[in-house]
Every structure is written in C-alpha cells, then in structure tokens.
C-alpha cells in the first residue's frame, strides 16, 4: 500500500463543487399526469402535493427542475426517469 504524493492529488475545480447540477423533466403529449405524479412520488419520495406541483409545472411550463445535486446523482436520476419513460436531461444549474 502506498500513499500518493501530494502534488498528484487532483484538486477539484471549485466551481464544479459549488455549482449543483439539475435533473430537468420535459413535457410530452403521451405521459399521463397521474403517472408522472406517481413517478415523482415513488422515485424521489416526494409528498403528493410537491409531486403534483412539479407535474403541473412540467405540463404548463414545458419543463421543471425535479432534483438538484452533484453530477453523478443527477445522471442517476435522469437514467431512472428514462427507465420510467419520462423525458429528462441533466444540466448545470443556472
């Protein structure tokens, strides 16, 4: 077992650490409002009120940020949304 010399340790870019990433769900004409609400409640564990509010935001505004966090976590969330058939993307928080 060895210890990496200090100069080899990569220091994460501060902006990378501080800027959270987001998972955005986009509106589409097929997914049911009841189903989208169910997915938000089941996968994210959101209470019904919050899940319905996010679903309505997707429906009315065309998109909604449904989660935020580090990039790995957002990629996991987007993959999960795709597995449910929701249309979702990862992006850096504005």
């Amino acid at each position: 077992m060895s210890v990496a010399p200090v100069e080899d340790v990569e220091v994460a870019d501060r902006s990378e650490v501080e800027t959270p990433w987001v998972c955005i769900v986009w509106n589409d004409p097929v997914n049911l409002m009841s189903y989208v609400t169910y997915v938000f409640m089941t996968y994210f564990g959101y209470p019904r009120d919050k899940a319905e509010q996010l679903m309505l935001e997707v429906h009315q505004e065309g998109r909604a940020i449904v989660a935020s966090g580090n990039r790995d976590a957002m990629e996991r969330d987007v993959t999960a949304m795709h597995s449910y058939g929701l249309w979702a993307t990862v992006s850096r928080s504005q």
Partner: peptide
C-alpha cells in the same frame, strides 16, 4: 432512449455508458 444532455456530444458520451442497461 432519449438524450440525457441537450448538448449532442455529452448526450452521445452518456449514451455509450447507459443505453445497454436501459
């Protein structure tokens, strides 16, 4: 199998790691 990023290059890269499992 939708794009996970609006940037096509990032979307293609991500797809190579996830599409098979999906």
């Amino acid at each position: 199998f939708p794009d996970a990023y609006t940037d096509p290059e990032a979307a293609d890269e991500f797809r190579r790691f996830t599409q098979r499992d999906l």
